[in-house]
Design a protein around this nucleic acid. Structure first.
Lengths: 229, 229
DNA sequence: CGACTGCTGACAGAATTTGGCATGATGATG
DNA sequence: CATCATCATGCCAAATTCTGTCAGCAGTCG
């Protein structure tokens, strides 16, 4: 692998990590020594890449570098197709439609030969367990998550016990056959998981949770032991 | 000026000229010999640049090497994030890496305000049933599917009966906990489904199936009653 | 046909790249 | 405050590569 290739790879590696990444890790990824990595980063900086290195933290590539990323590789196309198809097949209707639209937009900017690969991609999503729907609108949940609003819900748990709660929605998790709303429950003052098909009603409140969703998500990750993506 | 820098410059120079440029001129621009220019162009081509050289005309960089800016709706962003994460989590290693790279590339060409939504997307992929791996390399399967090559496989079916077959691979289907290769089996002269974890060995043959993959896929869809995507 | 231009191979000397080590500096963490 | 992780830079010898030159073949254009 020549140096030129590696520099583009390094750029892509930096793009991949949207959070600070240590030079040690990058060097390992690229199979080069730490010293060489510093030199490569120096070169990229000289070319105009906004790479910021902070001691004790790592490197971040600030967006806006004049050199746009390269076109997708065949593997990446397959990954995109597979991902979009999964969402189109397994998510709720609005998200499913959005997945199809997004794929169309991506297809629009690809050269002809690659666009063909979209249709002939050799990957498919197999039929899965039927998704226990419930009749609530996931769009409302997603909107509340995005807008960071409290929700008042009526919920029936696994034992059939009904309850009404005010929760702070954090994220919507898609399992193979069920969807789960991750939220902070004001009643229990702790995180709770609500199966969407057991939520009987939702009302979006105007009040905002006192903590930012980001912080909540982090706290939840810690509690559940979910690694950072 | 190091070579790495020069390659990036060459790319920019090619992008500037929308009409064929002679190698001589490019070489002069960059201050290198003609021979070196050819070598540089070779290197860029190896990286995926669609540079076309026609004798008596010059070089043109066909569009499609770089990814142009992309715009998405909030729902589409959530769909893309969800899809990529699903692939990153549930597909085999190379495809998983490709999903991360693709997402990074898409992120790099989105407007700033949209890019932020990537991090705050409120959708997640829940943990799923563990995927029964098998020790064959799915990359080999995907490559054979794309290249339309026959495969010689050793397979052990659900009843424990082992067999060796020559098949025409059509598609790779991702189920919740298992992956299945869809293929035409020469022995049975019909379509068969092979669980990847039961494929003991693969050998890619040089022979191509007599029918195009597209036609096979269509025939399979008809047989199985799978609707067009 | 002749003038261009793309494309490739071989080769030897020049230039660059690389890894390792040593040394600072800075920010995070407890 | 001490410790750790990390960024950053200089130096050097060995290894790698890059480069220009020359030579030849194959297309295109007028």
């Amino acid at each position: 692998m020549s140096r030129a290739n590696r520099l583009l790879d390094l750029l892509q590696a930096l793009r991949r990590h949207r959070y600070p990444v240590s030079g040690h890790l990058l060097a390992q990824d690229l199979g080069i020594s730490l010293r060489t990595l510093y030199r490569d980063i120096e070169t990229l900086k000289a070319q105009g890449a906004h790479i910021e290195g902070e001691a004790g933290v790592g490197f971040v590539l600030r967006p806006g570098f004049m050199l746009p990323p390269l076109m997708f590789t065949p593997d990446e196309i397959e990954a995109i197709v597979l991902g979009s198809n999964w969402v189109a097949k397994r998510a709720d209707a609005p998200l499913s439609a959005a997945a199809k639209n997004a794929l169309a937009k991506i297809a629009a900017v690809m050269p002809d030969d690659l666009r063909e690969m979209l249709d002939t991609a050799g990957v498919m999503v197999g039929p899965g367990a039927p998704i226990t729907g419930g009749d609530i609108d996931l769009g409302v949940l997603r909107a509340a998550i995005q807008a960071e609003r409290k929700l008042a819900i009526a919920y029936t748990d696994g034992k059939g016990a009904a309850s009404e709660r005010v929760i702070w929605p954090v994220a919507l998790a898609f399992f193979d056959s069920v969807r789960v709303l991750v939220a902070w429950c004001e009643t229990r003052t702790d995180f709770r998981h609500f199966r969407c098909d057991r939520i009987c009603s939702i009302r979006t409140l105007t009040a905002k949770p006192p903590k930012r969703r980001r912080a909540l998500l982090k706290a939840w990750r810690v509690k559940e032991g979910v690694p950072e993506p």
